[in-house]
């Protein structure tokens, strides 16, 4: 199930398990530092073995898969952009992923500018002149794909790590 060889995604939401039953005492939450410990050690090993570009692609693809599953399983079908943004804002806040804010959306949903404050991945990291939230890029791309049926390139243009206090993403539909 988890460790089968595969040529295509076998991820299923049920793989997340029954956390309430499994962690009756510790509950469903944990320290952000632990999440980051896993992410940055994983990144470290991936970069060492496959290089930066390949690692980024892996994070993007994983984020996109997560975004699509997040939309299908938690957000649910939205009949308007306003519904999507409201649900997304509430869910990301309640799950303590970050404070998402839509800054701009062009007509026909071709382009979006989205910011995330207090981001799970990067807020508080040391300044390094790098944009680091590749997983978030994929996550946003996956959600937008599920909502619109269109592929998006998502680029992080501002990041805590690059010295900004917000992570800003520009999403553009791929023609």
């Amino acid at each position: 199930m988890f460790k089968e060889e595969r040529d295509e995604s076998l991820f299923d939401w049920n793989m997340l398990g029954d956390i309430r039953t499994g962690r009756p005492n510790l509950g469903p939450t944990m320290d952000v530092a632990v999440y980051r410990l896993m992410q940055f050690t994983l990144r470290d090993v991936l970069i060492k073995n496959y290089g930066v570009a390949a690692s980024d692609q892996i994070f993007f693809d994983a984020g996109k898969k997560a975004g699509r599953e997040f939309y299908r399983n938690l957000i649910g079908q939205c009949d308007s952009l306003n519904t999507l943004t409201s649900k997304l804002q509430d869910l990301l806040r309640d799950l303590k992923i970050g404070i998402i804010r839509f800054e701009r959306a062009t007509s026909e949903n071709r382009e979006f500018v989205i910011t995330v404050e207090e981001d799970l991945d990067c807020s508080g990291l040391p300044i390094s002149d790098e944009t680091i939230c590749v997983y978030d890029e994929g996550f946003i791309s996956g959600i937008l794909f599920e909502y619109t049926g269109i592929e998006y390139t998502v680029k992080e243009v501002d990041c805590w790590c690059s010295g900004d206090r917000v992570c800003r993403f520009e999403a553009k539909a791929v023609d």
């Binding site: 804010r101 839509f102 800054e103 701009r104 910011t115 900004d164 917000v166």
Partner: peptide
């Protein structure tokens, strides 16, 4: 901080 303020104002506008 100014960038953060700009983001908040853009979000409010939206």
């Amino acid at each position: 901080q100014l960038k953060s303020l700009q983001s908040s104002l853009r979000h409010l506008t939206w």
